[in-house]
Amino acid sequence: MSDLIKRVKAAKRERTMQMWRTFRANRAAYASLYVLAAMALMALIGAFYTPYDPYRIDLSAALGFFSLAHPLGTDWLGRDMLSRVMEGARYTLGISFAAVLLGAALGSALGLVSGYYGGLLDAIIQRATDVLLAFPTILLAIALTSVLGVGIVNVVLAAGIATVPIYIRLVRNLTLTLRNEPYVEAGRAMGLSGPYILFRHILPNLSYVIVVQSTYYMGITILIVSALGFLGLGVPKPIPEWGTMIGDARDYIFTYPHVVLVPGVFISAAALAFNLLGDGLRDALDPRMATLLRRA
């Protein structure tokens, strides 16, 4: 008896392991995981320790190229670039993460309700989504910050809310499909309640899509947050949010390109890593992949 329950649990673990193995088989995704872990670690360390004070101005060392003392050089005020990148990582990555979390949570909840219950509520949510989707995400984010004003919380709100309509549409469409799946209908025939079906049968089958999409959106959101910073609409100076750093240094782009390139490379690397990670997660989490592989 208990032996059987053990076997059921072992099979569940084995499935998780299988997902992990599928994920690891995707080299690029696996490598991205290390890149992102390194960046997260950098952000964490940056909160407590940086080689120099990222805000200390030292005009005598201004615009220095890569050196032993300043591995990533210094900017036009002589501030150490490595220290600034480490300090800024917390802002860029943290804000992007919070924004995606906000967008995904809000958008998915609205999409789920809209798709499962339909009716007037669905109609209202969908028309609002139509309007919002008519604007490119970045424009929407810019519009929102100009209303909300500059500030860290406002950047999170702007970048997060800007992705909400995308999540609503995605989750609603999937919910509409899943709602008519035979196993959901069988659940209804068993007399299971709406919320139960929603959480037990629909959400688990959606969640992997939400996770994968959110990973992709992390990449996009990093770019949005940086773009807002670049435009001076994001995190205010002198906080070295990576986009703000580029915007701040744009005058030196032709004469001392490293002041722009260093944060630029970090932004691109983070965005790319999240995209590759998303690909890996998609293959690993999709239950149909396992079936397809078995059939082939």
Binding site: P182, Y183, E185, A189, M190, G191, P204
Partner: peptide, 25 residues
């Protein structure tokens, strides 16, 4: 319907691939 009545009417569908929640044992 009262739950015990609903239970008395059950269904089996055509597509075996979609009849079972793929995430459940």
């Amino acid at each position: 319907l009262p739950r015990h009545v609903r239970a008395r009417l059950q269904v089996v569908f055509q597509n075996p691939d979609a009849s079972l929640n793929p995430r459940m044992q």
